[in-house]
């Protein structure tokens, strides 16, 4: 089995990019991705991406935060170390609300951030893509399309990309 290689194509406009992607998909290439300095509207549909799990992660984490907040306060102040504080011992106490809420938000927020990191497999300071000097423009002002192909298909796909309007085509070097 020959290794997979990644071929990059730089496109001048979003329409050209999407057109190229659709053509490649039609010719059986599904391992596509776009690179752009800002999110491209409609890219999800073009790339046929599934719904993001991030909202579910956040929701679950918030729930855990809220439940643990209530349990923590009840157990600590009314069970484990029950003490008369200014004759205020109402269960459930409205005084639990702030901490409960904050814990919910804290867990939701951190789970989003670290969830994203997990989804992206970040941190990843090195990527073979970075070896392509021209690809740097992907975060500045250019639109790039990547397609993962078998090593023997590299030249045909490169030609295909050029034919679909790529201003530049680059081959990502193999990982050392």
């Amino acid at each position: 089995m020959s290794a997979e290689r990644v071929v990059l194509g730089k496109y001048p406009s979003v329409d050209a990019l999407y057109g190229a992607a659709r053509a490649l998909q039609a010719s059986g290439h599904s391992a596509l991705d776009f690179y752009s300095p800002y999110p491209l509207p409609g890219s999800d549909e073009v790339l046929k991406l599934r719904r993001s799990p991030v909202p579910f992660v956040a929701g679950a984490a918030a729930l855990v935060g809220v439940v643990s907040g209530v349990l923590m306060q009840w157990w600590m102040n009314d069970v484990d170390y029950a003490i008369n504080v200014a004759n205020r011992s109402v269960v459930p106490s409205p005084t639990w609300m702030p901490v409960t809420f904050e814990l919910g938000v804290l867990l939701a927020g951190t789970s989003i951030f670290f969830g994203l990191m997990a989804l992206f497999r970040f941190p990843r300071p090195y990527d073979p893509l970075f070896e392509v000097e021209a690809f740097r423009s992907a975060t500045i002002d250019a639109l790039w399309l990547s397609v993962a192909v078998k090593a023997e298909q590299v030249s045909t796909v490169s030609d295909e990309l050029r034919r679909l309007g790529a201003a530049e085509v680059e081959l990502v070097p193999e990982e050392a």
């Binding site: 991030v54 927020g109 989804l119 970040f122």
Partner: peptide, 26 residues
């Protein structure tokens, strides 16, 4: 190092936008 490996991939942008929005929401 601080960019953590961001490439502007549309697959990333998809999660990123939702995550950012929810974070803004909470």
């Amino acid at each position: 190092i601080f960019a953590l490996g961001w490439k502007g991939s549309s697959r990333h942008w998809q999660h990123y936008r939702i995550g950012y929005l929810i974070l803004a929401g909470i």
